[in-house]
Amino acid sequence: MVRKKKMTKKQKQQRIQVSVTAFLIALAFFIGLFFGDNPYDADYFTDKWQELTREWSTYLPRFEPESSSNGTIRFFDVGQGSSTLYQSEDGTNIVIDTGRYDDSDKRIVSYLDKYIGTGGKIDLLIFTHNDADHIGNGDLVLEYFQVDEVWMNGVDHTTRVYEKLLDAISESDANYYEPNAGETKDIGPFKIEVLNPQESNRTTDHNEESIMTRTTISGTSIMNSGDASSTVEKQIVKQYSNLKADVMLVGHHGSKDSNSTEWLSAVDPEVAIIQAGLNNSYGHPHEETLERINHQGISLYSTMDEGTVTVTVEEDGTFSVNKD
């Protein structure tokens, strides 16, 4: 169990507002002294306060309340594949990847039936890249659920799984979009920051063009880097001064060719989750990756050992990790 406390943006804004209020009170007091009025006269103080607040309201910053909400992020056990569901208490649903194409149990559909409801709404469906262990069953998700928007990286593939997915997108009512690094999107209480692909440095490599996102709710952030290699990780570390995230989905199912020391240090998560299949043919997660994570002092969970891993975020910014 991991829990943390932090001052939320809302709390910081409230602290600023208190400071501004104190400043106005002091200003009213000294104006009263300057004009010779009795600063201790209640009626005078009330009149001056109303006058000042009317005048200063034009110049003071307007603080919008932070879009805070309880949230749940479920890293599904889909074997040697990847699929994650982000949910908030207001009903916002974001799905990143849809598991393996050859999953005979179609677990992703069962999971979404359970947590969203059959035929329910998915606000955003992100396919990090077009490998079959990430877009598998994507066509079924689009068929059985109401998907508002789909993100893909734009790198074409020749597989039948990819073709079926494109057909399903075309037949759906979902909007289609290819995001680039530097873009942000607010969906309900979630803020999504796109870190990759790099528009100025596009390739035809499916993994390197993975849509990498940092998603934040109530001050807690989750990093998903798809299957991008350490080469891309290091480029992004050089480009961005702040990559800190509280929770990280371990890149490329724990491959030694991802999850570089530089990346782990920059993201510096409290918790990391590996999505990999038991006794998979790739040997994921690789021992080198586990050693790097352990050296960094990161709490590690794995779907191959613990089933679906759930991160629950409270409105005050604390979070906890549970396993099925």
Score class of each variant (00 low, 15 high):
Val147Gln: 03
Phe319Asn: 01
Ser210Gly: 09
Met7Ser: 15
Ser225Asp: 05
Asp156His: 11
Glu149Ser: 12
Gln275Asn: 05
Gln87Glu: 13
Val2Gly: 05
Met304Val: 00
Ala22Ile: 08
Phe75Asp: 02
Arg74Trp: 04
Asn207Phe: 11
Thr158Ala: 10
Gly251Phe: 00
Thr158Asp: 14
Ile169Lys: 02
Ser299Ala: 15
Lys234Glu: 15
Ile217Val: 15
Val2Asp: 09
Asn153Ser: 05
Asp305Arg: 12
Asp167Pro: 00
Leu33Cys: 04
Asn242Ile: 03
Ser19Pro: 00
Asp47Thr: 07
Asn242Lys: 07
Thr216Cys: 08
Lys256His: 11
Val78Ile: 11
Phe145Arg: 03
Asp97Phe: 04
Asp97Thr: 09
His206Met: 15
Gly120Ala: 09
Thr98Glu: 08
Asp37Phe: 11
Asp139Ser: 15
Phe76Arg: 07
Asp131Leu: 10
Ser229Trp: 08
Ile211Ser: 02
Val311Gln: 02
Leu124Asn: 02
Ile96Pro: 07
Val309Asn: 03
Ser210Arg: 09
Ile16Arg: 13
Lys323Asp: 05
Val18Ser: 06
Ala132Gln: 11
Val18Glu: 11
Ala42Met: 14
Ser19Gln: 12
Ile31Cys: 06
Glu199Phe: 01
Asn322Gln: 14
Phe29Asn: 01
Gly32Lys: 08
Leu195Ala: 05
Leu165Tyr: 01
Asn137Ala: 09
Asp43Cys: 01
Glu262Thr: 05
Trp49Met: 14
Asn259Ala: 13
Leu165Asn: 05
Thr184Asn: 13
Val247Ser: 09
Asp133Trp: 10
Gln235Glu: 15
Asp257Ala: 11
Gln80His: 14
Met7Ala: 13
Gly226Leu: 02
Asp97Tyr: 00
Asp105Gly: 06
Met152Phe: 05
Phe127Trp: 07
Gly79Ser: 11
Gly71Asn: 08
Lys323Phe: 04
Ser83Phe: 09
Asp173Asn: 15
Asp167Asn: 13
Asp41Gly: 06
Asn175Asp: 08
Thr92Cys: 10
Thr58Arg: 06
Leu264Asp: 00
Val18His: 08
Gln87Trp: 04
Glu233Pro: 03
Leu140Gln: 13
